[in-house]
């Protein structure tokens, strides 16, 4: 099922990039390509079943374990 990621991202890129390329906005193209690559890699890993790092868990660890300022019930 992981191969569904390819056409989905290709379709999204097909809608997003042509306008930027026509207007020749290189900054936005670079930024968008970087984001697309990251998203694609993460989505692919997730579709294959690997666990991707969760942002919330990091924050929770920082707040509760490192800084120890969380609530305790």
């Amino acid at each position: 099922m992981a191969f569904v990621i390819f056409p989905v991202f290709a379709l999204m890129a097909l809608f997003d990039f042509p306008k930027l390329i026509n207007d020749k906005r290189s900054r936005e193209i670079k930024l968008l390509s970087a984001l697309y690559i990251i998203a694609f890699a993460l989505a692919f890993m997730q579709a294959l079943g690997m666990e991707i790092p969760s942002l919330i868990k990091w924050i929770r660890d920082v707040i509760l374990d490192v800084l120890k300022i969380g609530y305790s019930l």
Partner: peptide, 8 residues
């Protein structure tokens, strides 16, 4: 992507 993996 992140919403799916935020809490296990």
């Amino acid at each position: 992507i992140f919403g799916l993996s935020v809490f296990s």
